[in-house]
Design a protein around this nucleic acid. Structure first.
Length: 470
RNA sequence: GGCGACUUAGCCAAGUGGUAAGGCAUGGGACUGCAACUCCCUGAGCAACGGUUCAAAUCCGUUAGUCGCCUCCA
């Protein structure tokens, strides 16, 4: 099995990945909060996490991956005043919070499907796990890691030896309420303490409430990930993923809760994806420039162009989004598909050479998921002296991880009705006859007629070929 | 203010001690009725300064810039 080196936020260095159990990987991903459309910045994380999972599978690991869906905790608490248009719109339509959650959950999975993101094997909405949260909070209270104050239950971060394992923050220098819309909670014993269970909050209109030993209320923002992970993946987690903005406090708090609850180290590798930025910084709903996959499609971009845009960069580098760059990638993607499409299927597999290119691919992916380098290996294969069958084989193999739909661009007659195919052949013949007779007006008219039916033609040296327009 | 990441050609980007991969764009050319496609040719000395070394984009230090986090955030 090839070696996979990964940067680990916990140790701040690149380490060889070794799971707790041989050939098995237990992986957890912080899922979306489904009260908004995901923007393409959010989706960068999910794309790179998808690449990680697929590469682990490619290496032969048996991967169990869990993702939560945050559908409770702050559904009506968006403090960014006036920015939550989607929710407001939904409210205007008299939808319930659960209906909104359903709607955006579906939208998220639609986006994933368009980006060839594999849905994790286990997807768990937080609202499915309320008894589990309550159980865990009770255990934390019993062990003395939590306390009740002002009607809420808080985690006591001062009870931990090293609360800051992940983020190396400095207690004295931490500022409370850096953002103006955050108010200091006077119930907390320590400024880093966080809520495990709310019965009282500034958001009186909270729609979803559950009975608990501390009164009717709802869970805090961090408990769900710890609890859902332990529920499905047990006490020892191999990889935990998320965006860099989750390092502190979300993941720091997850570690605090989980390890306090379990009494031992919980997760060995922390995988964090950097942000997608635009001119004004991190792409976010409150700053405008909120781009979604459906919007890109409307503008004529195949979502996989965006996937390639992400793969061309490295997951630990901030990536600046612009349409200029996306256009570059679009051209590159189309050229790539054209080249692949023009491959025949001749020859027998050249096994030795194939192994060499696979090694190059593994060497790239194994170096902290160097997807940009992996794409270069793909280009190298196309330029190589391998026969077409071998090239196809390798492209198909790499695409198990890259998932760029590299071989789907090939026109296969099964997607096209027979009649259309016959018609196309007939018109092309007619057009070529017209070209021979220098009747170019007629030839161009036929080309347009075919284009109207969604068929593109190219006059190559070997003759006219046609394909479905992409 | 603290913590963290990043800084290579017009743009994206590889590179982990021996004198800079690849992609897109640009310009030139071949092909072509035109278009598209395809093919060939075309560029930087690595943020700055200092240090270690026979040798540094690569190691160390300092500075600068960009971005993120510091209880909604991927």
């Amino acid at each position: 099995m090839a070696v996979l080196d990964l940067y680990n936020t916990l140790t701040k260095r690149i380490e060889e990945f070794k799971p707790n159990e041989d050939r098995k990987v237990r992986m957890y991903t912080c899922g979306p909060t489904v009260y908004h459309f995901a923007h393409i910045g959010n989706l960068r994380s999910y794309i790179m996490e998808d690449v990680l999972e697929k590469y682990l599978i490619y290496l032969g690991y048996d991967v169990t991956r869990v993702m939560n869906i945050t559908d409770v905790g702050h559904l009506t608490s968006d403090a960014d005043t006036g920015e939550d248009k989607m929710l407001k719109g939904a409210k205007r339509e008299h939808k319930t919070v659960m209906e909104i959650a359903e709607f955006y959950k579906k939208a998220f999975f639609d986006d994933c499907a368009r980006l060839n993101i594999k849905i994790p094997g286990i997807v768990e909405p937080a609202t499915n796990c309320i008894p589990g949260f309550i159980h865990m909070i009770e255990a934390l209270l019993d062990k003395g890691y939590a306390y009740e104050a002002g009607g809420n239950v808080y985690f006591d971060t001062s009870k931990l030896k090293n609360y800051y394992v992940l983020s190396s923050q400095n207690e004295e220098e931490l500022q409370v309420g850096v953002r103006d819309d955050v108010e200091e909670d006077i119930n907390k014993k320590n400024k880093t303490d966080f809520v495990l269970w709310f019965t009282k909050s500034k958001f009186d209109e909270q729609e979803l409430k559950w009975e608990s030993p501390w009164g009717a209320g709802y869970p805090g923002w961090h408990i769900e990930c710890s609890c859902i992970s332990i529920k499905h993946l047990g006490e020892y987690l191999d990889i935990h993923c998320g965006g860099v903005d989750n390092i502190f406090p979300h993941h720091t708090n997850e570690i605090a809760q989980s390890e306090a609850y379990l009494g031992h180290k919980w997760c060995n590798y922390w995988f964090h994806v950097q942000h997608l930025n635009n001119q004004s910084g991190k792409m976010s709903k409150s700053k405008g420039g909120f781009l979604t996959i459906p919007l890109l499609e409307e503008k004529g971009y195949n979502p996989l162009v965006y996937r390639m845009f992400c793969l061309q960069s490295h997951y630990r580098k901030p990536l600046l989004f612009s349409f200029d760059v996306l256009d570059n990638v679009k051209t590159a993607y189309e050229k790539l598909l054209n080249k692949i499409e023009s491959l025949g299927s001749g020859g027998t597999l050249m096994e030795q050479e194939i192994e060499e290119y696979k090694e190059q691919f593994n060497s790239a992916m194994g170096s902290d998921l160097n997807t940009s380098q992996a794409l270069t290996v793909l280009y190298d294969v196309l330029k190589s002296g391998l026969n077409d069958a071998s090239k196809r084989y390798l492209i198909e193999d790499f695409d198990k991880v890259l998932s760029l739909g590299l071989l789907e661009g090939n026109t296969s007659s099964k997607e096209i009705s027979k009649e259309l195919a016959v018609l196309a052949e007939k018109l092309i013949e007619e057009r070529n006859q017209a070209r021979k007779n220098k009747d170019f007006a007629r030839a161009d008219a036929i080309r347009e007629e075919l284009a109207a039916k969604g068929i593109e033609i190219k006059d190559t040296r070997e003759g006219t070929v046609w394909s479905l327009a992409r």
